[in-house]
């Protein structure tokens, strides 16, 4: 895993409100689907800046399009959580 993957994962986690705001994250083929405690602290612009190709929210679920690097990002997220 490269440093950039870890940095990207850390930036995504921070933009989602940090580990304390995460209930769970479901890694799909091209997306991370995060169930968060407080959707108000999620920073969509910061997710974009972290390399997300798209962000959609519905209630407490935030979908972050990250592309095929989802595997390495998910591994890095697991280490950070």
């Amino acid at each position: 895993m490269s440093t950039s993957d870890q940095e990207r994962a850390a930036a995504i986690l921070a933009a989602l409100g940090g580990v304390d705001n995460i209930v769970e994250i479901d890694p799909c083929t091209t997306r991370l689907r995060a169930l968060v405690t407080d959707p108000a602290v999620v920073d969509a612009a910061a997710l974009k800046a972290a390399g997300a190709y798209g962000v959609t929210s519905h209630g407490r679920v935030v979908q972050v399009v990250v592309g095929p690097e989802v595997d390495t990002i998910a591994s890095a997220l697991d280490d950070l959580m």
Binding site: V19, L77, D78
Partner: peptide, 17 residues
């Protein structure tokens, strides 16, 4: 098969609201 769900480690989670 779906990938396993990522969940915060219990020691670091705040008590559930």
């Amino acid at each position: 098969e779906a990938r396993p769900m990522l969940v915060p480690r219990p020691a670091r989670t705040a008590p559930p609201v």
